[in-house]
Design a protein around this nucleic acid. Structure first.
Lengths: 166, 166
DNA sequence: TGACGAAGTTTCGTGTGCGGAATATCCGCG
DNA sequence: CGCGGATATTCCGCACACGAAACTTCGTCA
């Protein structure tokens, strides 16, 4: 597979390439980084008998305590129907339990079991460990720049989509 | 191989709140941007009766001509087994056809049909349109910074994973 | 020639991931 | 109280997405 930062001959020749050439390159690089990170995360998770999203879930629950299914979905950038399946399998494996809220019986609290808590304590990183390592290797200035740029991107995306969360 | 996660001890000694706080924030933002973009891309694709990966596939095939399944997989950052399923559904819908290579009968060339080519011509963007729009809204300096930072991240990731050069 | 390892693709099992429909519950309003 | 809209979760069908195993074909080497 091509390194994501390589240049094609057409771009080298052209002084001012197409408008979106750098945009395409940035996208390609981000997709590469993201998918590669997910792949490695999955690999690490498997060493604990878990999947990627399951690791994310138990670390979120470890940090925030029991959450409703909707809140947990929001934290993981997943839909409720996706989260239902993840919770099902984690419940099947004895990692979490569903607790009906007594104040609002529509709500299901997802809580770690003892087994789940013990497992969470063994896993040092939340998710995307590879990406996180790479980010840590950046110097302070780069991280500040990246944070600034991502904030602008988020604002733009929020504006385009109209919805938001958190 | 020595892992880069050994710097957690340095973090604990550090007086500042927590070294990884901004890293976590950056990761969270990237995940948000990526998943949101994928969601919107899927939505756009559906208006043409396609899925997200299918749009990516026909635009890649439009640009590069018929590709072997392995080459197409690499272009899309997917595994061969994933690509097989995507090709199956696209073949079922008459968008592509499989052509056995005559020089190497192990190889299957994936080629656009007339219908597929016509559809590809109607779709202006390759993928991740939302993300691309947001990137275009950045000024020149930000894009240059982002490109530089992403190159460093890619180099670091490649170093951590091990070079799987093309 | 025949063994044999490598390469390309498919198959299989499992786990996301999404939108839409169905269900249950809550709440405000009359 | 009862109605109707809003909210929380689940169920359904489909499309990725991955690793491991199976299968075919290729190239080589003895």
């Amino acid at each position: 597979m091509r390194s994501a930062t390589e240049r094609t001959e057409a771009e080298e020749r052209d002084a001012t390439p197409r408008e979106g050439a750098d945009v395409d390159r940035i996208l390609e690089t981000l997709v590469y980084l993201y998918t590669e990170s997910r792949r490695v995360t999955k690999e690490v998770a498997r060493q604990h008998g878990l999947t990627g999203p399951q690791v994310t879930a138990i670390k979120v629950l470890e940090n925030f305590g029991a959450l409703s299914l909707t809140d947990l979905s929001a934290r993981m950038s997943a839909t409720n129907s996706t989260m239902t399946g993840i919770a099902d399998r984690m419940e099947r494996d004895g990692l979490v339990e569903r607790i009906r809220s007594e104040t609002d019986r529509r709500v299901v609290q997802i809580a770690l079991t003892e087994k789940g808590r013990a497992l969470a304590a063994q896993i040092p990183v939340a998710s995307m460990a590879l990406f996180a390592d790479a980010l840590r290797s950046l110097d302070e200035g780069d991280r500040r720049d990246l944070t600034r740029i991502l904030r602008r991107l988020t604002d733009k995306v929020t504006e385009l989509v109209g919805t938001n969360g958190d």
